[in-house]
Design a binder for these strands. Structure first.
Lengths: 188, 188
DNA sequence: ACATCAATCTTGACAGTGATAAGATTGCGA
DNA sequence: TCGCAATCTTATCACTGTCAAGATTGATGT
């Protein structure tokens, strides 16, 4: 039986992970630095060696979630061989990510700080979308058309993500078909 | 010079209005019951005669904002004679409302409690949309098609509202044209 | 091996927060 | 006019984020 060491050694990472667990269980609004510190077994001032303040801590969690989401999107791309289905698969995965982690959506967008210019998943989606559209329609697409189509599809995808959070309105399979048929309808 | 009366007389309404002013100036995260009470000139426990707790107070503000938004939407409908332009005007007004009051958007969606089933502006939009679509295409539209088209258009409209919050990416006139061309493209 | 330094953590405080109970003041209806 | 219910104040509670001061430690250079 060893007494716990003075230095935790991995506090920053553990704080982020436990923070996410806590959000999953009790929601963001009940997340407190002190409770989190106590649950980890560390003093209430300890986290401030790693995060300037609570907001910076939440920023770190945000970054973590965004990275996870982008990984999911990248995965969707790599498992997709046909160029024509790229954007659909991408959209599906985006919605599914929040469908499976509804509290992540709540968390990300419960903070005033989201604008799309500072939302990495959107940046990623946009890049892929613009590239794909140019490949699919090499001639007919002006820059402006590409932009519009991208925005529209994004709006649908992101809008559907909100739908997906509602209690049991859609099951997973219907969700996929829904996205499929909606995205195909976009013809700017 | 009369001493201030023991009973304020209109505290509930004033709390809501001053609350909104405060949100406009300093953001939701800095809104505290105590500061608000003090700024009105009333004790810190006074509001709890009118609101069960802070959340209930924020709910009241939410209701207030939603009513304003719905009024704007109704206004858009009444100023629109042609049936074919109903949904476009409705969409425009929705986006413009948040474009002109960006902090309202932040406020409404910064609280975990939004799901679309409990978002009156959406209910209103949906009702109008379904009615209009049936009028415009009396035969060809199945119930399912109407539903899909409504959802898609809503997703675009609501998605664009988020775009409109970004600093100076779109000016008002471009915004209107943008919505116009995007909504017209929906053909489910 | 040792001293030193920066990173990390604890203790102990502070002001500010939401909330409640107990009591004061008032308007209003019977 | 009495009394009740709504409204407001005072006093207090537990809890929060945060910081300064000091304790503990691992790493680094000599």
């Amino acid at each position: 039986m060893q007494t716990k060491p003075y230095h935790h050694g991995n506090l920053k990472e553990e704080f982020i992970e436990r923070g996410l667990e806590y959000i999953d269980q009790y929601g963001v609004e009940n997340l407190s630095m002190r409770k989190l510190a106590e649950s980890i077994g560390v003093s209430s001032a300890a986290p401030y060696a790693h995060f300037k303040n609570k907001e910076a801590f939440l920023d770190a969690i945000t970054e973590y979630v965004n990275e996870n989401l982008i990984c999911a999107l990248q995965d969707a791309i790599q498992n997709c061989t046909k160029e024509q289905r790229m954007l659909i698969e991408l959209g599906k995965r985006y919605v599914l990510f929040f469908y499976e982690n509804p509290l992540y959506y709540q968390f990300l967008f419960s903070r005033g700080t989201v604008d799309l210019q500072n939302y990495p998943p959107f940046q990623y989606y946009r890049t892929v979308a613009e590239r794909t559209l140019k490949i699919l329609h090499p001639k007919r697409m002006t820059k402006e058309t590409v932009r519009k189509k991208t925005i529209t599809m994004w709006a649908i995808v992101h809008g559907l993500a909100q739908f997906a959070l509602m209690d049991g309105v859609l099951d997973k399979s219907k969700l996929e078909k829904e996205i499929e048929s909606l995205l195909c309808a976009v013809d700017v």
